[in-house]
Computed example of a mutant assay.
Amino acid sequence: MNLLSVKKQRWKITGIGVALLLLMVFLSGCDQGKTVSRSDFLLDTFVSITLYGESDERLLDKPFERITALNSSLTAFETGSDLGLIKENAGIKPVTVSEDTYRIIEKSLAYSQNSGGYFDVTIGPLVDLWGIHSPETKEAPAPEAINVAKAKTDYTKIVLNPADQSVYLTETGMAVNLGAIAKGYIADEVMAVIKEEGVEHAIVNLGGNVLVMGGKADNSDFGVGVEDPRNPGNGYLGVLSLKDGSVVTSGDYQRYFTDAAGKRYHHILDPFTGYPADSGLIQVTVVTEASVDADSLSTTLFLLGLDEGLKKVEALSDVEAIFITNENKIVVTSGLKDAFVFDEENYGDTYTMTVR
């Protein structure tokens, strides 16, 4: 079946005024036999799970319970939450946290180290200062405030103690932020639950963080659409074909605000400058086995820019990427040469594609 002939399922999150889904799974128009599916608004986005070759909807209960539980522990800063307590006790004392919180912060610290600080799990002060969510009109923070928050962003000042499962930020005013990794971690955890239930074919879609397993019930590949960053929510530049793995995108159009002069500020912050990244990229899509890797790497590669991003991908095994520059150039790593089909008929006049 031609991947470009598959039926598109498009969802929009109207509650926050902007479509947040970067990637959507293309479901075949042909008969796939038995399937069960469920969707909900969780993790501040639209999430869905589809199981192929299954007819028992109760198989979806535990995966959604896992999402709900992780949503409470990994994405909240309320008083008494793990992340809230870590922030409140920064510079004061270590905080013993749940197993999931400890594991994801441990992974985040490793990514921070491996990226040379481009991915920084302690970027919380900058994220809080900029406060970039839904599109709106407001002014950027003062340079002095940015410098203060940047000084509080330093992953080398986080101390983990496996003996008591504690996390300690060594300076007051520091804060952990898991926004660039939480959905990837949760997707992997949810797929683990699905596998434990004996399911062999599934899609987990957490607001565009897509994780697939086993292909469709007829053994054909899933097709994952890569969105047009110049017109988000209204078109797909092409389709990625895969049976197993994760696809995650980071782009400058997801969350942003505009100042009175018309300058736009997106939400992907550079921990070295304290400002939204100006790397020459407008979107990066990463394909890996684990969603937690794809999630963290999509941010890292966006910050690194095209040339350094390509070097990073080349240095890693089982990682592929699609870079889109602000000059409308699509650069696809060689491992996706056959897996990514560019819609040249509709986008060839706007974008040019090369394989590296």
Rank of each mutant, 00 (worst) to 15 (best):
I268E: 04
I268D: 01
I268M: 05
L269S: 04
L269T: 04
L269Q: 00
L269N: 00
D270I: 02
D270M: 00
P271D: 06
P271L: 06
P271T: 11
F272I: 10
F272W: 12
T273F: 13
T273C: 08
T273S: 15
G274I: 00
G274D: 01
G274Y: 10
G274R: 08
G274S: 12
Y275Q: 14
Y275P: 05
Y275F: 15
Y275W: 15
Y275L: 14
Y275N: 15
Y275R: 12
Y275A: 10
Y275H: 15
Y275K: 15
P276R: 04
P276I: 02
P276H: 11
P276C: 13
A277D: 13
D278F: 06
D278V: 13
D278Y: 09
D278Q: 15
S279Q: 07
G280F: 09
G280P: 07
G280T: 08
L281Y: 06
L281I: 03
L281A: 13
I282W: 05
V284F: 08
T285C: 00
T285W: 00
T285D: 02
V286P: 06
V286R: 02
V286S: 00
V286A: 09
V286T: 09
T288N: 07
T288D: 06
T288S: 14
T288C: 14
E289M: 08
E289L: 09
E289G: 14
A290M: 13
S291K: 01
V292K: 00
V292D: 10
D293I: 07
D293K: 08
D293P: 02
A294Q: 06
A294H: 07
D295E: 13
D295H: 11
S296G: 12
L297M: 11
L297I: 03
L297N: 03
S298Q: 12
S298E: 09
T299C: 03
T299L: 05
T299G: 02
T300N: 05
T300A: 12
T300I: 11
L301A: 10
L301V: 07
F302Y: 15
F302C: 08
F302I: 04
F302A: 03
L303I: 15
L303M: 12
L303T: 04
L303D: 03
L304R: 10
L304C: 06
L304H: 05
G305P: 00
G305D: 05
G305W: 10
L306E: 12
L306I: 01
L306S: 06
L306H: 03
L306F: 04
L306V: 05
L306Y: 09
L306W: 01
L306C: 04
D307M: 13
E308Q: 14
E308N: 13
E308Y: 15
G309H: 01
G309A: 09
L310K: 11
L310A: 04
L310Y: 01
L310T: 10
L310W: 02
L310D: 07
L310I: 15
K311H: 13
K312R: 11
K312Q: 11
V313Q: 09
V313G: 01
V313C: 04
